[in-house]
Nucleic acid binder design. Structure first.
Lengths: 254, 254
DNA sequence: CGGGCGTTTGAATCAAATCAATTGGAGTGG
DNA sequence: CCACTCCAATTGATTTGATTCAAACGCCCG
């Protein structure tokens, strides 16, 4: 892990030492409004998906975008040698398929982790609708921008956090994603095996399991009766500050 | 490091075992054509930047995008506690500032690593020009899409590769970025300290140094006379296959 | 010429991976 | 209903790869 006092990045020219104050990271983005806008101004097809359903596949030729109306999906990148990695998680209001635009073919698999509904929208029809409804273009660009920022944030977590904090940050992210959409987040169902979580976080399944146990021992989370896939987060703020602190000092759980 | 035989991701429903064949990962994107299109259809301001110059800063209010006409830039993400991380590298033809669209404020710093020229384009004027020139919108979306795919690829490298391979993959990426733009790539100048490279790759500076030494010992790279910031890549293919192999078997350098 | 920084290299330490054994549910079939 | 299998998850022991600590070198620049 990179130590907190270790700030290797040294710009050739120096800037004022106190940069921007802790930025407000929470989304101020109204998911419902965006879905309403799309619903009113676009033609699309609805598809109900269930756990494990493939929404699109890497390599398939691109011509549609997918807007998740409910449920949770994962994007899985496949390397040439067959290794798979979960690279992104998508919640209600998130778009999928942007990765296909550049090369005219999707770059990863999109898989439902849940029962849910995706809206299937032809890219061409979005573009033409945007000329009439400029707000739609704004909505689309904002979604792409959020995808970029989100990917960078996970990169940053993975590069700078120790295992325990990484797992904690993953739970925080999941809970906040639910909270942003007005869903209850104190009691969440992970929908992923330890192996998948580890894969997403760059850890082994054993390390994920150990970290979860440690977090539970520290009362930052609690396991539900029946099934250790469901966890309770009694105090999201405490989880957040654990992540924050572990960037500053070594982890002192147990 | 995750072992290659370790494929933890297990979809609930199974798909055909042999997925897409090794996808063609090289860009098929004509940087020159895109720059020409923008140059002809948009008003913009040119700015010559030098090493260390700040192009935009996290938190600044968003209203411009930046198109890099020459030189190399880095995007640096700043956490609340002051830790900085290089999250992305930008080459000729790449856009910067997409991260600002969602929240109306940039999310990271953009800093020149080189003498170069950026084109400064008001976002509003891009949008209005897109109605007249649809190709421009396609170009913009393709650029955002490439940013998303690129970020995911680096996430994947960092999560699945051991230190030596990560450094090798970084050099491969740099060289290919130059090659895609028609620049010579057998002899590249890194423009970053070991500390910065490590920061970007989630490694310490010592580990980066050791990995570079190992790669040199294996003749996959060579240091130039005068200065260890300049390296030669005698055979880019060999470097690529080293990265490939190291995903499959343990690294057996020296 | 001397100071400061970036780099290299070695030795010791540590965190996470690996190896291994066990538990606990979910589902199946006798 | 219980025995059985199968797979996810937990936990412990050990190994290993990367970090940390430390020292020395080389280069640029004043």
């Amino acid at each position: 892990m990179l130590d907190a006092t270790y700030v290797p990045f040294a710009p050739t020219r120096s800037f004022p030492p106190v940069r921007n104050a802790p930025r407000e990271r929470r989304e101020v983005h109204d998911v419902g409004a965006a879905l309403r806008l799309v619903g009113e101004s676009l033609d699309f097809q609805r598809r109900v998906v269930r756990t494990g359903d493939l929404i699109y596949r890497a390599g398939e030729s691109f011509d549609k975008l997918y807007l998740l109306n409910s449920g949770i999906c994962k994007l899985v990148n496949l390397a040439a040698d067959g290794r798979a990695q979960v690279v992104s998680l998508k919640f209600r209001g998130d778009w999928m398929g942007f990765d296909g635009i550049a090369r005219n073919a999707y770059d990863c698999d999109a898989i439902a982790m849940n029962t849910g509904e995706v809206w299937i929208i032809r890219y061409a029809s979005i573009l033409s609708a945007c000329t009439d409804t400029p707000a739609l273009l704004g909505c689309l660009h904002a979604a792409m921008s959020r995808a970029i920022v989100g990917d960078r944030d996970s990169l940053m977590s993975i590069c700078t956090l120790a295992a325990d904090a990484r797992v904690a940050d993953f739970l925080r992210y999941w809970a906040e994603s639910l909270a942003d959409r007005g869903m209850r987040y104190d009691r969440i169902s992970l929908l992923m095996t330890r192996a998948e979580i580890g894969n997403y976080l760059g850890l082994t399944l054993e390390t994920v399991s150990r970290s979860l146990s440690k977090l539970a021992r520290a009362n930052l989370i609690a396991f539900n009766e029946r099934g250790r896939r469901e966890i309770c987060i009694p105090d999201l703020g405490a989880l957040e500050s654990f992540v924050q602190e572990s960037t500053a000092t070594a982890c002192v759980l147990h």
